[in-house]
Amino acid sequence: MSALISISHLTKTYKREKQEITVLKDLSIDIEQGDFVALMGPSGSGKTTLLNIIAGIDRPTQGEVMIAGTNIGVLTETELAKWRSRHIGFIFQFYNLIPVLTAFENVELPLMLTPLSKSERRRQVELALSVVGLADRMDHYPRQLSGGQEQRVAIARAIASDPDIFVADEPTGDLDRVSAEEILTLLERLNKEFGKTIVMVTHDPSAANRARIIHHLEKGDLIPQGQS
């Protein structure tokens, strides 16, 4: 069976002024469906760049990125946007909720891109918010929620459209220990109960230990460390 995410010979370079910086060097990696992968490494190792390329918000300079049978490197911006809306759920370090929208409306946001009816959308949002345990906070604005609750709303937004892959960039980086544990438990549930594939970037070893596979990156190279 082919991997859900198959990356081969990926190179990513940035141009900063006249200097060319190579962030990822000839990297190849396969991630199976249902995996929970943690990407670790020091700052500048290329882990967030790799995550962004998997999420389809950055493009490879060289190499092939096949996700669920689609070579996303050749998609146009509009095709890529549509692809992201169907396949990727984002969880950001700083939650990135829209402050003028309630928790309900924030979760509903990605569903605006689907052909679902209003009542179907409502059902979906309520389900997503109940999964993250915030069904009673759906009318609250982000400023009325704690950091942990905001991140749970962000997770609800990510799961609302039922994507195949979740990408999480330091999802516990801005949270206290208790809230961080809650979020990691939630991600574990998504992986184990709902069979979702999760790729998470983290600096935190205890967060990484929740993943089933940990990959270490250093200077744009991947160093497999073993399975948990």
Partner: peptide, 14 residues
């Protein structure tokens, strides 16, 4: 700016 980036990442087009 960041919100527009979030919207784009969620799949909102030009």
């Amino acid at each position: 700016t960041r919100e527009y980036a979030v919207l784009k990442s969620l799949g909102f087009t030009g």
